[in-house]
Simulated assay, not measured.
Amino acid sequence: MKLRKVTAASAAVFALALTATACGGDDSGDNGSSSSGGGGKIKIGIKYDQPGLGLKTPQGYEGFDVDVVTYVAKELGYEPDQIEWVETKSAERENALSRGDVKLIAATYSITDERKQKVDFAGPYLLAHQDLLVKADSDISEATDLNDKKLCSVTGSTSAQNVKNDFAPKAQLSNRGGYSECLSALQNGQVDALTTDDSILAGYAAQDQYKGKFKLAGLKLSNENYGIGVKKGDTETVDKVNKALEKMVSDGSWDKAVEENFGPANYKNERAPKIGQLVQ
C-alpha cells in the first residue's frame, strides 16, 4: 500500500483543525445547554402568562417558578444572562423535553404518575392545592357554599367540574378563555368565585390592580406537587437540580421567593416540601 506523504503545511492545517474542535466545538446538545455552564447557554421552559409564577413583561421574566429555576441554573453553573427562556404551554411540556427543546421546565408542572412515564422530575419545590378565589368581602368559605352560586374556571380545566362533582352539585359553572377573564367577571359580580391551584390564584390576586380586592378561601381541595421537568433518563441532571433545591430551602432563598411573589395575596403557603417526597 502506498502511503501519502504529509507535508509540513498540511500537518499544520490538521493541527489547527484539532485545536478548533477542542476549543470551539459544539458540546451544547440539542437543547443549547452545555453540561457544565461556563460560556454556554441553557434553555428553560416556563409559562409566560401566569402572574406570580411565570410572566413575561417588558422588563423581562418574573415569578416564583422563574426565581426557583434561576437559582437552580446558577447552581448548575449558569448566570441569569446565560438562560434562554422558552414559553412552554401545558400541552407541550412533555414534547419540549423529549425533543430537547429545553433542558428544564418549571411551569406549574404537577408531578403525576402519568407524566412520570414520559419525563423525569426533580423536586417537588412547591405544594399547591386547588382553592377558591373570592371577593375580599365574600362570605364563601367552603366549597359547599358554592351551591346555587356561579363558579368560574378556564375552558379545558377540570377544576370547576371537580368542585361540582365532589362538593357543590348545584354550582353553576361558567367557563372563560383565561384567568384574567375570570378575574374580571369576579370583580364585576358576574361570577361568585374562581377556582384553580392556590398558587396561581395568589399570583393573579397579587397584581397591583387587584391588591385588596380578592382573597383565597384557604381550602385544600387537592394536592399539587410542582416539580422541575427533565428529559426522561437524565438522572444526573435530576440529582443536580435536587441538590440545588435543597440548598435554596436551607439558605432562605425559597422563603424569600414565596414572600416576594405571593405575599400581597395573603397566600398561606405550605412549608417547602421534602425533595423526593410527594404529598398524595
Results as ranks from 00 to 15, higher is better:
Glu94Cys: 11
Ile200Gln: 01
Ala244Cys: 13
Ser98His: 10
Phe262Arg: 03
Lys149Ala: 12
Gly39Tyr: 13
Lys231Phe: 14
Ala193Tyr: 08
Ala8Phe: 12
Phe64Ala: 00
Asn269Arg: 02
Asp192Met: 00
Asp30Met: 12
Leu173Cys: 01
Asp113Gln: 14
Lys247His: 15
Leu76Tyr: 01
Gln187Trp: 10
Asn147Pro: 03
Ala91Met: 12
Ala272Gln: 03
Gly45Met: 10
Leu194Gly: 01
Gln209Ser: 15
Gln172Met: 07
Pro51His: 01
Asn266Tyr: 08
Asp30His: 11
Pro51Lys: 00
Tyr61Thr: 06
Glu87Pro: 03
Ser90Ile: 04
Val102Glu: 05
Tyr210Gln: 14
Cys23Tyr: 13
Ser90Leu: 10
Ala107Val: 07
Glu87Asn: 08
Val119Ser: 05
Pro124Met: 05
Asn95Tyr: 14
Gly25Asp: 12
Ile83His: 00
Asp139Gly: 15
Asp197Phe: 02
Asp145Ala: 15
Ala168Gln: 07
Ser157Tyr: 10
Glu246Phe: 10
Asn175Pro: 06
Tyr109Gly: 01
Val6Lys: 07
Glu142Phe: 11
Leu55Val: 06
Leu132Ser: 04
Gly100Val: 08
Tyr78Asp: 00
Asn242Ile: 11
Pro169Trp: 04
Leu216Met: 12
Thr108Lys: 00
Tyr204Ile: 04
Lys149Thr: 13
Lys56Cys: 02
Ala122Gly: 04
Ser184Cys: 13
Ile200Glu: 00
Ala128Gln: 01
Ile46Asp: 01
Val68Ser: 10
Glu62Ala: 13
Gln277Tyr: 12
Lys170Cys: 10
Asp65Leu: 05
Asp49Lys: 07
Lys268Cys: 05
Gly40Arg: 11
Lys215Ile: 06
Pro264Ser: 05
Thr88Glu: 03
Leu201Cys: 08
Gln207Glu: 13
Gln190Tyr: 10
Gly203Tyr: 02
Ala15Val: 07
Gly229Val: 06
Ile228Leu: 12
Asp234Ile: 05
Gln161Arg: 15
Tyr226Phe: 15
Gly123Asp: 02
Gly39Met: 12
Thr21His: 08
Lys268Pro: 06
Asn261Arg: 02
Ala107Trp: 01
Pro264Asp: 08
Ser222Trp: 09
